[in-house]
Design a protein around this nucleic acid. Structure first.
Length: 868
RNA sequence: GCGGGCGUGGUGGAAUUGGUAGACACGCCAGACUUAGGAUCUGGUGGCGCAAGCCGUGGGGGUUCAAGUCCCUUCGCCCGCACCA
């Protein structure tokens, strides 16, 4: 196998293409795909019409990163199959496409290559759109959206102002990753091992005023409504539910001994209170801030804790550290017991109350902490079997006074009751979900429509002054946000008092842009974000398709926006995406040279059986297959593949091997195999055309020969099975069944008029069933079969149940659960008759010999098991 | 660290509710055709065994007449963790 097939084969493929045309036996994809794409465009075939029944197919909004890679191609091929299939089933389709055009990579390109983010982005969009067009997807391009256009973001600014009116948007102080050398805020991905990716300086957490959306107000609804999303993968619903993280617990008051103050603790395990050995408070808690003023060592400790990025992962994986404040609190139920108060780096300020009580015996983090600081570890829950500490499972309470002998649930109720009657605490529901911080200290995003006035404070930009346009004349030659450094843009007059004021220079998180785009597609040219009636006609999305990596954030934010927009009166919609398909990633082998540098597939080739670098012939190392990513160079651009093999071949390959939800392995052999099959299909249909000319196609024959019956049965069985496969997104099986079908047709050489009729029906069916997957080839073959365009508008074939039924059933025979052969039976046979039949089978007789039959199990139509 | 998944031949994967493991392909092997071509066609292909048969779904254990599928445990890999999108 030659790896650098792309360049070399492109030439040979072209030569072959010529030969094929002359010979007339090969499918000319180049000519054909161009021809049909043009015809579709001229007929405005994919223009969405507001007619019932409707079907909205949506693939996740792509970021215009440069070139279309095969991961995109997979996502859109799946969507296109669904869209075309549903259209054939009689639905009016909305199938749009657009661009998630704001974001960090454009700014990085600006810094690295000196190209303006807008120029870079628009060029990428141009290239990627060209490639999308070449793949023949059924998009309604009249509805294309571009999130970086003022037309789009003006509406986003309006939505934000409405959120502000409704109290959904608010401002508070929050931490960012601060690079002290660059003097800029870094994204989490720009922090590597706690250091800035460019400067290498240790990152610190710094507080800034930022805008937030109150997603927590919707926590309960976001959780409850998950149960209505019947066609979402269970794993995604589970992940979202855990992310929202609702927990019933208690708020407990601990009076400080040394001060006349009380600390409030939130815990999900109040029943372990008698095992408490310390209180842990977050270094970012306001109480600590006050305390640190008088304790310099604590001040130092807090700074140390902040010497890392904001990422949850980094904070949680950091070594547990504590600072003993010297303060103590009173245990609510044990008079003589006081607990030390530690500032602890593993306690989060924004979960619960920011203070915990540590019960080392039953929490692994508390346990680690207690061992380190030599704090008592008292077990209060006894497991049914001996368990090592820390033990976090169910059990019976011990060492807990009035709760001894209770189960965990009983004890929870009991202690909350007692806390409430003593006025030392109360039952409390808490969520892990935090409010959504939407401010970004960056240029290439939607400007936040806010003005800061020294007299009036925070003033929203009046709606008639929208959009707040992002200025173009910026440079990236200094640290920080170019909007901050802009000489004029941010200086404005206050809309309230006409005094001198300044614009907010932060921009929105780009997740904002993708949280409502599905609604914009419904009214892409409206002066409002969308028209209620149009949005409510099309939404919710009937089938949403995208990567599993968006299981939580994007999908949760979009669900939240839907509910927040309802609160603002935009619509009555509850959920944006009725059905969700999360597709797996596309993987490819990785290559490195001797120096360990990653190489692209076309920098590698096989010479004399060894893989070497094309440029200098030195050996290379082949790594295992990994998710395609630019950083590992194992990406395959669709453009070259389309040029060499055509759109239908790449589409076929994307559908063939793996089921959509699993990872997909890209191989050169696989694309070759698909190309061969495309030609096989072309030959199968075109070589039989002359056979079909003589027959009267409209008249169903009175009698069918056995051979004709067999093929007709297969035809109708295939329709039924393929339909079910597509409905269930078993798209690889959909293709596999059609291959089986076409294999059978290749062997079918008709000789009787009923057989010709059946062949005609079978070929028409085959082409119709393939049409969603291979639209260009299907249009071409449809025309070859003498039919008028477009196959796109043809109804989906219906299977005749009479022809799907089997006359006999193959029954599996087992002896003691082991397979011993099969037997053909009539479906109407009774169990006794079947038993007699099976006991007469030689292989069964050989197993039974003299033994006694203890049991006979018969599962109708499936299996019979003789138990000895 | 926490949360969620996945694991089947040389390879990608098939296998309603537990009921014929390996569909359909890729690859490989053998043959046919042929102006030798990465074209096309035919046959074979989980492992062991001459065969009967035995063994096989990451490893170990369990439930069941019956386990790829259910339960426990263990290993490996992947996704997400709130400023990548």
């Amino acid at each position: 196998m030659r790896i650098p097939f792309l360049l070399e084969r492109a030439t040979s493929a072209q030569q072959q293409q010529n030969k094929r045309t002359i010979m007339g036996t090969r499918y000319n994809f180049r000519e054909n795909e161009e021809k049909w794409q043009k015809a579709w465009r001229q007929a405005s075939l994919f223009k969405a019409k507001e007619e019932s029944p409707k079907y909205y197919v949506l693939e996740m909004l792509p970021y215009p990163s440069g070139r279309l890679h095969v991961g995109h191609a997979r996502n859109y091929t799946i969507g296109d199959v669904i869209a075309r299939y549903k259209h054939a089933c009689g639905f009016s389709i909305l199938h749009p496409m657009g661009w998630d055009a704001f974001g960090l990579p454009a700014e990085n390109a600006a810094i690295q290559h000196g190209v303006h983010p807008k120029t870079w982005t628009l060029e990428n969009v141009r290239l990627m759109k060209e490639e999308l067009l070449s793949l023949g997807f059924s998009y309604d391009w009249d509805r294309e959206i571009l999130t970086c256009s003022p037309d789009y973001y003006r509406n986003e600014q309006k939505i934000f102002l409405d959120f502000l009116k409704q109290g959904i948007a608010y401002r508070k102080k929050s931490f960012v990753n601060w690079d002290p050398i660059e003097g800029t805020v870094l994204a989490n991905e720009q922090v590597i091992d706690g250091k800035g990716w460019r400067s290498g300086a240790p990152v610190e957490r710094r507080q800034l005023f930022q805008w937030f959306l109150k997603i927590t107000d919707f926590a309960e609804e976001l959780l409850d409504d998950l149960s209505n999303l019947d066609h979402w993968p269970e794993k995604v619903k589970t992940m979202q539910a855990k992310w929202i993280g609702k927990s019933e617990g208690a708020r407990i008051l601990f009076p400080l001994i040394e001060k006349n103050e009380t600390l409030e603790v939130f815990t999900t395990c109040p029943e372990t209170l008698f095992g408490a050995s310390f209180l842990g408070i977050s270094p970012d808690h306001p109480f600590v801030e006050g305390l640190a003023k008088s304790i310099p060592a604590l001040q130092t400790f807090v700074v140390e804790c902040r010497a890392s990025g904001t990422s949850q992962k980094d904070i949680e994986m950091a070594e547990k550290k504590g600072f003993n404040t010297g303060l103590t609190v009173q245990h609510p139920f044990i008079k003589d017991l006081t607990l030390p108060l530690y500032v602890a780096n593993f306690v989060f300020a924004d979960y619960g109350t920011g203070i915990i009580f540590g019960c080392p015996a039953h929490d692994s983090r508390d346990y680690e902490f207690a061992v380190k600081y030599k704090l008592p570890i008292l077990p209060v829950i006894k497991a049914s079997h001996d368990e090592n500490l820390p033990y976090e499972g169910e059990g019976i309470l011990i060492n807990s006074d009035f709760m001894n002998g209770m189960t965990v649930n009983e004890a929870k109720k009991e202690i909350i009751g007692r806390l409430e009657s003593k006025k030392l605490g109360s039952k409390e529901t808490s969520y892990k979900l935090r409010d959504w911080g939407i401010s970004r200290q960056r240029y290439w995003g939607c400007p936040i429509p806010i003005i800061h006035c020294p007299d009036c404070g925070v003033v929203p930009v009046p709606e008639d002054q929208l959009p707040v346009i992002l200025p173009q004349d910026v440079t990236f030659d200094q640290p920080g946000n170019p909007l901050d450094a802009h000489p004029t843009w941010k200086y404005v007059v206050c809309p309230k008092c006409n005094g001198a004021a300044e614009r907010e220079t932060d921009t929105f998180d780009t997740f904002m842009d993708s949280s409502w785009y599905f609604a914009r597609y419904c009214s892409p040219h409206s002066s409002q974000p969308f028209v209620k009636e149009e949005a409510e006609f099309w939404l919710s999305v009937d089938q949403y398709i995208g990567g599993i990596e968006h299981a939580i954030l994007h999908l949760l934010y979009a669900r939240f926006f839907t509910k927040a927009l309802r609160q603002c009166g935009y619509w009555d919609l509850k959920e944006p995406f009725q059905n969700l398909l999360t597709q797996g990633m596309v993987c490819h082998e990785t290559y490195r040279d001797l120096a360990g540098t990653w190489l692209y597939p076309d920098e590698v080739e096989k010479r004399n059986g060894f893989f070497v670098k094309v440029s200098d012939g030195t050996p290379i190392k082949i790594g295992r297959s990994e998710k395609m990513s630019k950083s590992k160079c194992n990406v395959v651009a669709t453009e070259k593949i389309v040029q060499e093999y055509g759109a239908d071949t790449i589409r076929l390959f994307m559908l063939s091997d793996s089921p959509p939800e699993r990872d997909f392995e890209w191989t050169d052999a696989g694309i070759e195999g698909s190309w061969r099959y495309i030609n096989k299909l072309w030959r199968l249909v075109t070589s039989r055309l002359s056979d079909l000319n003589s027959i009267k196609k409209s008249e169903i024959p009175q009698d069918f020969t056995d051979k004709a019956k067999e093929i007709r049965k297969l035809t109708h069985k295939t329709i039924a099975e393929v339909t079910q496969d597509i409905e269930r997104f078993h798209l690889n099986r959909y293709i596999a069944r059609l291959r089986e079908f076409s294999n059978a047709l290749e062997d079918f050489l008709p000789s009787d008029s009923s057989e010709y009729w059946v062949l005609n029906e079978a070929l028409h069916t085959l082409v119709l069933l393939f049409a969603p997957a291979l639209p260009h080839l299907a249009e071409a073959l449809w025309a070859e079969l003498g039919q008028a365009p477009f196959i796109y508008d043809q109804p989906w074939p219906q299977s005749d149940p009479m022809w799907v039924q089997e006359e006999t059933i193959t029954l599996a025979i087992q002896v003691n659960g082991k397979m011993r052969g099969t037997v053909e039976i009539q479906p109407h046979l009774k169990e006794e008759e079947i038993k007699a039949l099976i006991l007469s089978v030689p292989t069964v007789k050989a197993q039974i010999k003299e033994k006694i039959i203890k049991k006979f199990i018969y599962v109708p139509g499936k299996v019979a098991n003789v138990v000895l």
